[in-house]
Amino acid sequence: MATLMGIDFAALSLKDALDLAVLIEEEAKERYEDFAQQMELHHTPEAARFFRFMAGNEERHRAELSARRLALFGGEPRRVTRGMLFEVEAPEFDEVRVFMSPREALRVAFRAEEKAWAFFVEAAPRVGDEGVKELFAELQNEEVHHQRLVLAELEKTPPESALEHADVADDPVAQ
């Protein structure tokens, strides 16, 4: 799994798995915030709005998982770190472009949800703890649900113009 660094899934406890899930959501939230900021700066407001919306979703999931972790394990110290993962649910940093359409932004989110689903599918057989298995199955299902939501949104979003932005825009302006 290219996205992972140094995670021993067989040794993962439920507390570790919840911490990992929280960090995954945190990473995704930050990436969507970065994307929204980039789109705002580069005059692409519709994509920016969508990425802000996604950042809000990821933050909500993070808070839910965090509350669950707190209820089960209180303030017990964390063993997993952000350094152990890379872009699990966060879209890849190079997915965005100036003047991208709302449909393109939705497709970025869809690919990210697919990627997160694949992560949990690949991780599941390596897990030893029953509680972790259940949690990963639950998160995997959630990713499927998110994919459906994004697809439904795509259905409602008007098709892209036949024109590429390069057909109508001036050359990019030097910074």
Partner: peptide
């Protein structure tokens, strides 16, 4: 330290999708 400790408040103005975002991370 975590990566966040080294992230400043200044927002990058590189073109979206630029490789430099990856280098920064």
């Amino acid at each position: 330290f975590s990566a966040k400790d080294f992230k400043s408040d200044l927002k990058p103005i590189w073109c979206p999708g630029c490789g430099d975002f990856g280098v920064l991370q």
